[in-house]
Simulated assay, not measured.
Amino acid sequence: MKKRNYNSKFTKKQFIVLIVCISTGFMIGYSYNLAKDEVKMNSNYLEQEESYREELISQQERNKELTEELIALQTKRREYEKDFAENEEEYEHLLKEAENLRLLLGEIPAHGEGIRVTLKDGEYNPNSTNPNEYIVHESHVFNVINELKVSGAEAISINGQRLKSNSYIRCNGPVITIDGKQYPAPFIIEAVGDQETLISALKITGGVFDQLLNDRIVVTIEENDYIQMPSINDE
Rank of each mutant, 00 (worst) to 15 (best):
G207V: 11
Y168L: 05
A185P: 03
Q195P: 03
I204P: 01
G173D: 09
A185H: 11
I204H: 08
S151V: 01
G180L: 03
G207P: 03
V192K: 11
L148H: 01
K149V: 08
L198S: 09
P186R: 02
I156T: 04
I204E: 12
G152V: 05
I199M: 11
E196G: 07
G173S: 14
G160C: 05
L148T: 04
L212W: 04
K181I: 13
N166R: 10
I169N: 07
S157M: 10
I169W: 06
S165A: 13
G193C: 05
N166A: 06
I199V: 12
Q211P: 00
Q161C: 00
I169E: 04
G180C: 06
S151M: 01
I178W: 03
S165R: 03
E190P: 08
S157I: 11
T197N: 06
I145K: 00
I156Y: 07
F209G: 04
T177M: 06
E190W: 02
T205L: 10
L163D: 02
V150K: 02
A201T: 15
N166S: 06
Q161M: 13
V208I: 14
K181E: 06
D179L: 03
N172A: 15
T205H: 12
G207M: 05
G152K: 13
R170W: 07
G160Q: 12
P184H: 05
G173N: 10
S200F: 09
I145V: 10
V192S: 03
P174M: 15
G180A: 11
G193T: 09
I188P: 00
Q195E: 09
V208G: 02
D179V: 14
Q182P: 01
V175N: 09
G173A: 10
